[in-house]
Design a protein around this nucleic acid. Structure first.
Length: 510
RNA sequence: GGCGAUUUAGUGUAGAGGCCUAGCACGCCGCCCUCUCACGGCGGAAACCCGGGUUCGAAUCCCGGAUUCGCUACCA
């Protein structure tokens, strides 16, 4: 097994890339990079019915945003192209013929209605060795009849002729040998004459072989059809170069039953797509991780740990570390429930690593959206404000809630805090505080702190009460960073202005 | 229904016969820090699907059952 590692991510452009698909792509990528292999992106657009315009661009953009780099693909090129299946018709046609010629497949003329009827009338109907002679195909029909149908231009499909009674062994790197008897497999459709396109099964095997794919890492939903794929490799005579299989567990709903779906996101209020998606048909908009305020690094880290662990207690790992530590041995075999809360935590962690300056830049659009002109303050001011509150945010957008008082005066004062902290003496005491502030030569945090705390002590005031009332006038509620850090940044004039505003506007409860 | 996979706290997981009075993380609760709210630090509640075996000894091995998930299309 000296073969070069080559893996592929092969989505079909039938809609936005699902977060589960993203994880599959990520695992492929980690595996490829770790082994110095190649990562192929193949577009499986063999279903002309379900094709959605824009989906392919969406896939590319998503992977790019996440930092999953493609070595070969439609955009990147490569010597095994084309990488879009709809452009490989000649190749498939040729391979279908190979199978037809060596008797591994046959043509079936049954109409959809006929198939439907067979399924409805016969219990447990399956198109296989036990039933195929009773259907209309090139095996059951006389040769001249088949020829006549073909000459008439009758539509047909090519089905794989599965020999029954054989135990087919799929060696899965994660699950070991999975054995399925060929009798339970049906004669899968490999090719449809109607649109001159193969189905997934045929295209997948032909492409993986031609593209010299060494490892097929895909979702568990493919496990039941893996024996069929093994048989297909054999039918083509490619048994000895067949890739290794890895069937990853699925991502499950945070609650209830079943795998994670688009609906869950809508219902529980979190994104299931990497990027925001505008459905071209319905006009419906689905939220994305990027637009929700996630850092791509956080999404990658979070996703990596859903179904895999590094074997030690580390949790925060960047792409480079993930590549280094990734191993199939530490992938789990059971579905992982999607935990949105943990995702938030990862984003929080990554946000802490972003510099105040960078965070300030990310905050600018939000400031503008809230009617604040960033130029009135300057980037330095914004960065310092952001630096004071970033420890308490999970998303960039949380910055507004935590830091808005740096930019706009309080319009209302939290009733609960007013009740607790604003007694009848406060207007007077705050008036005195204003006088103290006016006298203060220096607004530097620790200098002013010493001074004001000294003044409070001299007058025998209660520190907590005075400080919180002070905070109430400046912030509007009793929360936020160290009070004197706030006033240092805000400056003397603004601080005094807010206290006076508070004296005027805050009415003692009771 | 058939076939396959799966099963450790609410969630993600560690654990590959004695190191397990089952570890870590998120979430939850409490304490500390403190002018407040957070952050952070410390601590707490919380799990081996069930039943049989094998063994001196089982979360770990065997058998049976149950569970959950997937597949069962001229979709991928």
């Amino acid at each position: 097994m000296e073969r070069k590692v080559r893996v592929r991510f092969a989505p079909s452009p039938t809609g936005p890339l699902h977060i589960g698909g993203v994880r599959t792509a990520l695992y492929n990528y980690l595996f490829a990079r770790q082994h110095g292999g190649d990562m192929i992106l193949r577009i499986e657009d063999t279903d002309s019915q379900r094709f959605v315009p824009g989906a392919e661009d969406y896939i590319n953009e998503s992977l790019k945003w996440l930092g999953i780099k493609i070595d070969e693909g439609v955009r990147e090129g490569g010597k095994y192209g084309p990488y879009k299946q709809s452009e490989r018709r000649d190749i498939y046609r040729e391979h279908v013929k190979m199978l037809l010629d060596n008797g591994k497949a046959y043509m079936a003329f049954d109409t959809p209605a006929e198939l439907e009827e067979a399924r409805a009338t016969r219990p447990n109907f399956q198109y296989d060795a036990s039933t195929r002679m009773s259907m209309r195909n090139s095996l059951s029909l006389p040769a001249d009849e088949v020829k006549r149908l073909l000459d008439e231009g009758a539509q047909y499909v090519v089905r794989f002729k599965i020999e029954p009674g054989r135990d087919v062994v799929v060696n899965d790197l994660l699950r070991g040998n999975v054995t399925i008897n060929s009798s339970v497999l049906d004669d899968k459709v490999l090719y449809k004459s109607a649109d001159d396109l193969p189905t997934y099964h045929l295209a997948n095997i032909v492409d993986d072989h031609l593209m010299e794919v060494s490892h097929v890492i895909r979702g568990e939903e493919w496990l039941p059809s893996a024996p069929l794929h093994v048989l297909l490799y054999e039918a083509f005579g490619w048994g000895d170069t067949r890739p290794d299989f890895v069937h990853l567990p699925l991502l499950l709903k945070p609650d209830g039953k079943g795998k994670l779906s688009k609906r869950d996101g809508d219902r529980l209020g979190f994104p299931v797509f990497p990027l925001e998606w505008h459905d071209p048909k319905s006009g419906e908009i689905s939220s994305g991780y990027r637009e929700t305020g996630y850092l791509p690094e956080a999404v990658v880290n979070f996703l990596a740990l859903l179904g895999w662990n590094p074997g030690d207690d580390s949790e925060i790992m960047n792409m480079e570390e993930l590549i280094k530590k990734f191993t199939l041995e530490h992938c789990s075999r059971s579905g992982a429930r999607f935990d949105f809360e943990k995702g938030k935590w990862f984003n929080h962690k990554y946000l802490q690593e972003v510099s105040d300056e960078k965070l300030a830049e990310m905050f600018v659009p939000i400031l503008k959206a809230n009617g604040v002109n960033p130029d009135d303050y300057g980037m330095d001011y914004i960065a310092r404000a952001v630096g004071m509150v970033k420890g308490r945010i999970n998303f960039v957008k949380d910055l507004w809630d935590q830091a808005k008082f740096f930019f706009v005066e309080p319009t209302e004062y939290a009733a609960k805090d007013v009740k607790k902290r604003w007694n009848a003496d406060m207007p007077r005491i705050m008036g005195e505080l204003v006088e103290e502030l006016k006298k203060a030569p220096d607004m530097t945090s620790n200098v002013l702190e010493q001074e004001i705390l000294g003044w409070i002590a001299e007058n025998g005031y209660h520190t907590g009460n005075v400080m919180n009332a002070f905070r109430l006038t400046v912030v509007g509620e009793c929360k936020g960073p160290h009070m004197f850090d706030i006033t240092e940044l805000m400056g003397k004039d603004e601080t005094i202005r807010r206290i006076e505003l508070g004296i005027e506007r805050i009415k003692p409860a009771e």
